[in-house]
Simulated assay, not measured.
Amino acid sequence: MPADEAPVKPTPEMIAERARRADRATRGVLAGLLVLEAIIVLLVPRAIAFTTGLGTTRTVILIALAVLMILVAGIQRRPRGIAIGSGMQVLFIATGFFIATMFLVGAIFLAIWLRLLQLRVELVGSPSGWRMLAG
């Protein structure tokens, strides 16, 4: 930038546009995280088959959870998408009852989810605390 030009101060419209783009970007990353979790849930039956045995009920529950996660990933752009996605984190951690390692994996993904929500608070100015879970 040449020395004789002063930096442009952002207008309220520019700030609002940046917040809108940041909101869309963070929602997209949250949707991607849910799809990644769905893929991991689909890999769980293979691990269960080698340890405790794989039954029809477990298989149906895990496949239904994976499909539900993909559907919830698709609604992340909606106003309640983040709240529903936050609820899906609890169900993802609950897969630990099928294979204990999933408690650890679920906790890691929950930490990533919460960090992304905190980043969204910083970028968009959305509510913080417990209200950030609801978008």
Score class of each variant (00 low, 15 high):
5 E>M: 07
5 E>K: 14
5 E>F: 13
7 P>D: 08
10 P>A: 13
17 E>N: 04
17 E>W: 04
27 R>G: 02
31 A>V: 03
31 A>R: 06
32 G>A: 02
36 L>T: 13
36 L>K: 11
39 I>L: 13
39 I>K: 04
40 I>K: 05
41 V>L: 08
42 L>Q: 02
44 V>Q: 05
45 P>E: 05
47 A>K: 10
49 A>H: 00
50 F>C: 03
53 G>N: 09
54 L>F: 01
55 G>K: 07
56 T>P: 00
57 T>W: 05
60 V>T: 06
66 A>V: 06
68 L>N: 04
69 M>R: 01
69 M>N: 00
71 L>W: 05
75 I>W: 08
75 I>E: 06
78 R>H: 08
83 A>I: 10
83 A>H: 02
87 G>V: 03
87 G>E: 01
87 G>C: 02
88 M>I: 01
91 L>H: 03
93 I>H: 04
96 G>S: 03
97 F>D: 02
99 I>A: 15
101 T>Q: 13
104 L>A: 12
106 G>C: 09
107 A>E: 07
108 I>S: 09
114 L>V: 15
116 L>Y: 12
123 L>A: 13
125 G>C: 10
127 P>L: 11
128 S>P: 09
129 G>L: 11
130 W>L: 12
131 R>Q: 12
134 A>F: 14
135 G>S: 12
